[in-house]
């Protein structure tokens, strides 16, 4: 892949993101007939659609960037935000808040704060358990993530059995992932700021990110500081994922598949991979959100997480079968 070609792909991805967001603004479905059409939204709906388009792009970009940082820092092409136990931690936080609100008889609690708290606690726990010689160890971190995710998952199942059925249904719907059309005013600016800061750091530290792909001795010898770079990657990925999960619930496969799509197009250099991965993630999520507007199963629209998983799973299997250089780091 020539460098000119890689830059061409990035421009093409950026154009595709803008096109997908415009499509999300224009697409309209009549809830009574299920028919859809393309039209500029009137003022009553514009705000909802702008929020959904912006949220989809930011959430997709953030999840994909998290996956990119995790795959580099853990030297594992199968690494994704879920390996840090973030989604399960967020789910446990929400479920715990719902249960406490239920037994104490107070009203429906806000979902974002407990989701964020659960996600951050899961990241902290995984980072502490995954340390070796003071720095995150790739294998120990993945194992710690699996344990934390499994235990949080068991906690969620336990709490689901203790709340009324209606509450459980709403939780399960959130747990499949959704792109919200209304959000607290601070949610998207917070995610946009975090994403911008992480992208800027990715550009600044692109050489050290490339060095993470080497073995520990070579990376240290060239001055790649793999320990501290790995820690920054894990913390950044953890925070980005925690905020996205708090906003949208867990979206399967975005953080796993989108970085691989970007790598196929522009190669493994992080100078190009970071922007390409952000754009690929944005396209995947906004595109899935557009697609769900036109799929009518006669019983409401599909959660977007179902579509990302249905599309991402087979694609990733194809990638695994394809093997070769693109399955490498």
């Amino acid at each position: 892949m020539t460098r000119f070609g890689s830059r061409g792909w990035i421009i093409l991805l950026a154009v595709a993101v803008v096109a997908a967001m415009i499509l999300r603004l224009l697409i309209d479905r009549d809830p009574s007939t299920g028919d859809f059409s393309l039209a500029w939204p009137d003022a009553a709906w514009r705000g909802f659609r702008v929020t959904a388009a912006a949220a989809g792009a930011l959430i997709g970009g953030a999840l994909s960037l998290s996956g990119t940082l995790l795959q580099a820092s853990l030297r594992n092409p199968l690494a994704a935000p879920s390996v840090l136990g973030v989604s399960s931690g967020a789910g446990l936080g929400v479920m715990l808040a719902l249960y406490i609100a239920h037994v104490s008889g107070v009203g429906d609690p806000p979902w974002m704060p407990p989701a964020m708290l659960g996600a951050v606690l899961a990241v902290v726990l995984v980072l502490v358990l995954g340390r070796r010689d003071g720095w995150p160890d790739p294998v120990s971190t993945i194992l710690a993530g699996v344990i934390v995710a499994t235990m949080a998952g068991a906690g969620m199942v336990l709490l689901q059995g203790l709340v009324p059925e209606g509450l459980r249904g709403r939780f399960l719907s959130w747990a499949m992932g959704t792109i919200p059309e209304t959000l607290p005013a601070s949610a998207l600016p917070l995610l946009a700021t975090l994403l911008a800061v992480t992208v800027a750091w990715g550009f600044y530290a692109h050489g050290r990110l490339d060095a993470l792909l080497l073995d520990h001795a070579s990376a240290t010898s060239i001055g790649g500081s793999p320990g501290s770079t790995r820690l920054i990657c894990l913390v950044a990925a953890g925070i980005l994922t925690a905020v996205t999960v708090a906003i949208s619930g867990p979206l399967g496969f975005v953080g796993l598949v989108a970085p691989h799509v970007a790598r196929l197009l522009v190669g493994s250099r992080h100078l190009l991979l970071v922007p390409a991965a952000v754009l690929a993630g944005a396209i995947l999520v906004v595109g899935a959100d557009v697609l769900r507007q036109v799929i009518d199963l006669g019983n409401g629209r599909l959660p977007v997480g179902v579509l990302t998983t249905l599309a991402g799973g087979p694609f990733f299997l194809w990638l695994l079968r394809r093997g070769g250089r693109h399955a490498s780091m």
Binding site: D210, A211, D215, A217, G267, R325, M329
Partner: peptide, 22 residues
């Protein structure tokens, strides 16, 4: 140069060599 340097790199040969000047 370690005994078993990473061989599963999808970085190009040129980029690997450039990393020597990181």
């Amino acid at each position: 140069l370690p005994q078993r340097p990473a061989s599963d790199l999808s970085l190009s040969v040129e980029r690997l060599v450039e990393l020597g000047r990181l």
